[in-house]
Amino acid sequence: MTSVNNAPPEWERVLWRPQPFPDNYVPPSFLSALSKNPNVLPYRYWPLVLGACAISQNLSVVFIFLAVFTRLLDHTLDPRLLVALSTAGFIGGCLVWELMGHFESDAASSERRTCFSSSIQLNCANRSCSALGARTVKASLLVFLALIALAPILRTLTAPTSADSIWALATALFLVHAALADYTYSASPVQRERLTSVLSTNAAISATVVLASRLHNDLAVFALMLFSVEAFALFPVLRRCLQQMMPAPVQALVTGTLGLAALAAPLPGLCAAVLVSVTFGAPAALIWAQQYKHEIRGPWDAATPRGFEGDSGAT
């Protein structure tokens, strides 16, 4: 930084020596240590689109749920059919799950295994396939029965509330769900779920509960609740694992299928617009905004201290 040269009076970046320069002399090295955007990673479009797929998948699920609800409401969908479909979906999901677990056990990556087991049975000590299967069946049966038992209560829980309030409340809760959901890519599966993602699931289930009061019979309420538990509690777990393991084409296929199914929702035009803008518009906007990134770093920034290597115990 300092250059020592005795012969001609040369400006030095020191304060302890009086120098033959005025105090407001601007040296040629002024701001030479300044660096702009030193640790900025320029984004590329398609990886961003792939990342946005998680968001559009989640939104699609919300739209599909709304489609199912409106059809239940005007009796164009038989609740028994919905129950059957949900059960089939659940079994299908479990199969996909097991298959992925199988692939992964070949790779002998235990962390992924924890990811699978953590979804339905936390702390599953014995991770052999049969034990996992038995536990899954038991847990799902319990949920199934509990929902049947609760259906009459849920139907009348918010029945006295006026329809306007219900629509407004449900909209707000779904917005909360969409805003707080965990869209992170390849988060370490061992890591505990964050509070926001728990809140997000809760918001979606609460929205279902308030909407359920508009339905006409207990079976419909039960079918809706079952579907909602699958769509908002179980599907995100499956989605995250898919996201971690599956190549991009599968991702695109899943997003596309869900997106098409979402067009069954009321106001299909709006849904399509939202999905397209989230999947393709938002990444483009982010890349466009990158040009305005202007981060300044210099020697005045606080240094980051580093401890001894391999000495984490030093408090």
Binding site: M1, T2, R13, V14, L15, W16, R17, A303, T304, P305, R306, G307, F308, D311, A314
Partner: peptide, 16 residues
């Protein structure tokens, strides 16, 4: 680094 001549002060990088 500006306040003292190099022979009166020893410098270290901010690592342990």
């Amino acid at each position: 680094p500006e306040i003292l001549p190099e022979d009166m002060i020893s410098f270290a990088a901010p690592t342990a």
